[in-house]
Design a protein around this nucleic acid. Sequence first.
DNA 1: CGATGCGTTGATAACTTTCAAATTTAGTGG
DNA 2: CCACTAAATTTGAAAGTTATCAACGCATCG
Lengths: 239, 239
Amino acid sequence: MLTQTAIRRDAFRHPVPPTRNIPPAATKVFDGAKDRKPLGQSIFLMSAAKSFPRNAEIYGENEPADYLYKVISGAVRTYKILSDGRRQVEGFYLPGDIFGLEFSDEHTLSAEAIADANVLVIKRSMLTALATHDAGVARELFALAGYEVRRMRERVLMLIKTAQERVVGFLLEMAERVPAGNAVELAMSRQDIADYLGLTIETVSRTLSSLEDSAAIELPTSRRSIVLRNRTALSHMNG
Amino acid sequence: MLTQTAIRRDAFRHPVPPTRNIPPAATKVFDGAKDRKPLGQSIFLMSAAKSFPRNAEIYGENEPADYLYKVISGAVRTYKILSDGRRQVEGFYLPGDIFGLEFSDEHTLSAEAIADANVLVIKRSMLTALATHDAGVARELFALAGYEVRRMRERVLMLIKTAQERVVGFLLEMAERVPAGNAVELAMSRQDIADYLGLTIETVSRTLSSLEDSAAIELPTSRRSIVLRNRTALSHMNG
DNA sequence: CGATGCGTTGATAACTTTCAAATTTAGTGG
DNA sequence: CCACTAAATTTGAAAGTTATCAACGCATCG
């Protein structure tokens, strides 16, 4: 919808940050992962780079799902708007994360850049073709699907819990995904978090304040940062 | 844990009910499904049959995930027990449904028979081997993972809604999965439903009563049956 | 430095859970 | 087939949690 920069074909030379210790990837199709190889190792070799300004739409629900994406920098959210206007944020994607995986012709979610984002893009038809001849690619695609399933199962588990447990779970999740000590830099707004957790922004805010009161976290003036003060206590609160 | 009958090797001759119009399966790995082929067509050709009495454990969390299962008759639930005793039911599996798909070495969920159940069982190592040589098997496994992802996404969407929306969503889901007109025969108890929807049994019961009061459904004396009286109204309530 | 939007806080209402008890169904044995 | 027991479900009342509506405070950016 909004701007998007030109597509370049030099993905090989892109300063791709080392893929973080994301999901364990399966080494054999449908086999358990013993070794923790980063995901999407060979999937994005032939990709193009693209960038999106803050709040730009990357793809929309019901649009053809012709590409797979990998975040290089910035952050992305996928979401769905319900008929009554509620928004459900399905996931946050940070550098190294892959998003846009679909199993039918159309996207079932929309994707937007939370902050200015650079992403790698690869055509799905290309991947399909590659997977036919390269077992490694097929394996990685399967591993990707597997990672998605596990992530979703954790998400379901989180959504049946109380507000405090959800917020704490979110903080711990983020702390794990952005390993920068105890200072967690959040790319997303409170509203994003609320829509991700199925809560209102007020409840998220109140819960954070309450966590600060109990000395479990600290809320610096820079609102997008949260410092974990007592992980043990937080883990305990996580259910 | 409980009894389990002998394993037979004559799965070919088993009166396998026609796979219902479950998930659309991809025809090409990572490709959208144009044709709606039933899932698990070739996966269970080499399977063994096994039966489990009501409430018997089929597998437990943290046990090695060495098999994939397909329901022939009866019903199965997968679930997880949280540290504080809460139970989260992850899914219900009816005849034709496949369960037990995992992406690591161990089961992340437990599975139990809701009613006396006959299931087909196939070794995962066998599938892995088959998939290496048979692209059809590999495709089906990928499609299965894709179906799981979509199911989970719908589940997440359901869990951010109100109690009434969840219950209505559950009823419509069941009506779709067990196409028997408007009389939905539920295999599971109210407690199972509650744990599936992240609600208490009282809330589920009250919501059903309320739906009956508004003439949207009818609750016959046989408690495991629910008649949908007004699907339009129900769909409207579904959000 | 002031507008502007994001985030926090307060008060109240709505919803869901909890605790308790009443009903009803499914089984069992006579 | 009926009475009886145990289990499941429903219903009621009160408490607890989260949402809603409203106002205020405070970063961010022009």
